[in-house]
Design a protein around this nucleic acid. Structure first.
Length: 268
DNA sequence: ATGCCGCCCGTAGGGCGA
């Protein structure tokens, strides 16, 4: 065989994905399809909207994944799937009592993975908005402590914050609304200031790309979206980053989640 | 626009998300 016919072995990479599925009950087959197509090393899910006792563990273990979940009835709920074993699983933010299941952490191969579902906030004058800001203060403490203990920390999930005007299809229309307010953006900036980077923005500084499109008003077809799902990684992780991909294809499927999955690829 | 769509619970229609 001529040397040029030898296929160069593709460079291995490690993939970390996040996806707000808006009901794992409804979206299970789509999650399985995503896994078959991409085989991420780690996949974290938000808004599973189910209790732990009905979580479809077997559907994932059959595919070789280890599973941790923190669910509740009706709302919220997060999960971590990993091809390698999950160690030191921690539910919620330590020291912060919150009945809403929004945070789940585990270690995979010396990397600390934190799956987050940040509160939506409803509107900027609501109690839910104040809950969101107070909640994020607790996340900042948690993030600071976590990265101090694990130089390789990845905090990924649905942040419900569009960090900049580039992350909003129509900044004028969204001005003054929840998800884009200065206080929420200050929260996100404060997280980055702890030694983290917004992986997508670091790897694609100028791209206008969205991770969420409203179900209403044909928002996806018109690309009226926001970038609110993020992979926030410590410097030691960013050093290994190859690319960060927002996969809009699942948003085009029948009965889709309103969010797209996001994947960070690290060099192995 | 207290709207739009989709999911949950529960079996009608209100709560909630973003």
């Amino acid at each position: 065989m001529k040397p040029e016919l030898h296929q160069k072995k593709p460079k291995a990479s490690i993939a970390f994905s996040t996806w707000n599925v808006n009901s794992l009950r409804v979206r299970l087959e789509q999650v399985l399809t995503f896994i078959h197509e991409h085989r991420p090393d780690v996949l974290v899910l938000q808004e599973i909207k189910m209790t732990d006792d009905i979580f479809p563990i077997n559907a994932f273990t059959e595919l070789g994944y280890h599973v941790a979940m923190s669910g509740q009835p009706t709302y919220n709920g997060v999960a971590i799937l990993s091809l390698k074993p999950l160690q030191d699983v921690v539910v919620g933010i330590p020291g912060y009592s919150d009945p809403q299941k929004r945070v789940l952490a585990a270690t995979v191969d010396s990397r600390r993975i934190v799956c987050v579902y940040v509160p939506n906030g409803a509107s900027v004058d609501s109690d839910k908005y104040h809950y969101k800001l107070k909640w994020f203060e607790q996340l900042l403490v948690y993030a600071k402590n976590t990265v101090a203990a694990y130089s390789q920390t990845i905090i990924l999930g649905d942040y419900n914050i569009a960090p900049s005007e580039k992350d909003v299809h129509d900044p004028v229309a969204w001005q003054g609304q929840v998800l884009v307010s200065p206080k929420e953006r200050a929260c996100f900036e404060a997280l980055l200031a702890l030694g983290f980077s917004d992986a997508f923005r670091v790897l694609a500084p100028e791209d206008k790309a969205y991770t969420w499109w409203d179900y209403r008003m044909n928002a996806f077809k018109r690309n009226h979206g926001l970038r609110i799902d993020h992979i926030v990684a410590s410097k030691a992780v960013i050093e290994q980053a190859e690319r960060c991909v927002i996969d809009a294809v699942p948003r085009s499927w029948d009965r889709p989640s309103d969010h797209a999955p996001v994947t960070l690829y690290l060099s192995a």
